[in-house]
Amino acid sequence: MTLAQFLQQTINGLSLGSLYALLAIGYSMVYGILRLINFAHGEIFMLGAFFAFYTFTFTGLPWWVAMLVSMVLTAGAGLLLERLAYRPLRDSPRTTVLITAIAISFLLQNAGQMIFGAQPKPFAPPSLLLKPLQFELAGNRIFLRWTGVLVPIITLALLYLLTLLVQRTRIGKAMRAVAQDTEVARMMGINVNFVVAITFVVGSALAAAGGVMWGMTFRNIQPLMGIFPGIKAFIAAVVGGIGSLPGAMLGGYLLGLAEVWLVALLSLFQSNAFTLTTYRDVLVFAILILILLFRPHGIIGEGTAEKV
């Protein structure tokens, strides 16, 4: 592999990793506060892409306005999900909540197919972003698309805003307190339900941004598009250390890079595209299993002892 190819793949990996990171944060925040794996997060991501699609199909607004509208709408959907499905189960056994989350995920997938139609829809980003970006490096040409550059930039901006929210604001402080100990936070006068709701709002809005950018990168969207990105982002959150925000970001980027590099490496030996994608998915699951077995708290997360 030449240096140019390596660089190109790295930028692709960063772009994919950004999307995983945006999704992984949603999983990580919800897990940190509720100890709940929100299986339906991938479907929230799908909803984000569809809201944006319908916004600019019907109103013709510029793409970044559509993205903001979609973030608001998806945040509403996340809020609704929490209010209707997860809040009634706050004190139920974990198994019950997990089954509910899986069921909600299936419900949204199938309802999506029923309402939006199962056919993939073309998701056209503005022509400006489709222009190829090429430059020369050490005698080799590198081909990129503007989307590939824009996605990491937008992601980093959003992540910076999120860090500000969590570290500098009152509600951010409340979120950290609830994640540390819900009971004590409640005793200190923190409205736990409000904090949980805000968590879902923020996580869903970020997922929506991820969904829109996913659509711009891969240029089509369909109701089942959330399944694999959702699972992989969850794995990214676990790899980084679930419950930790820097961990989720790190895990997202690591997973994106690992995936792209592996495919690039394998394509040197094999040209069968079908086997390549196959190994790609197996690799991700293998990473998950290895991390869970040898370092269940992830790269950054801290382990807690089981209390009786």
Binding site: I37, F285, L288, L292
Partner: peptide, 28 residues
């Protein structure tokens, strides 16, 4: 054998991953 070293939610995810791996590997 490896999965039961974990508890709770993680176990669900790992069994899920194994189920998919079985399918993907057989397909390959």
């Amino acid at each position: 054998a490896p999965a039961f070293r974990l508890r709770g939610d993680y176990l669900a995810i790992v069994t899920f991953a194994f189920g998919e791996i079985i399918r993907i590997v057989l397909e390959a």
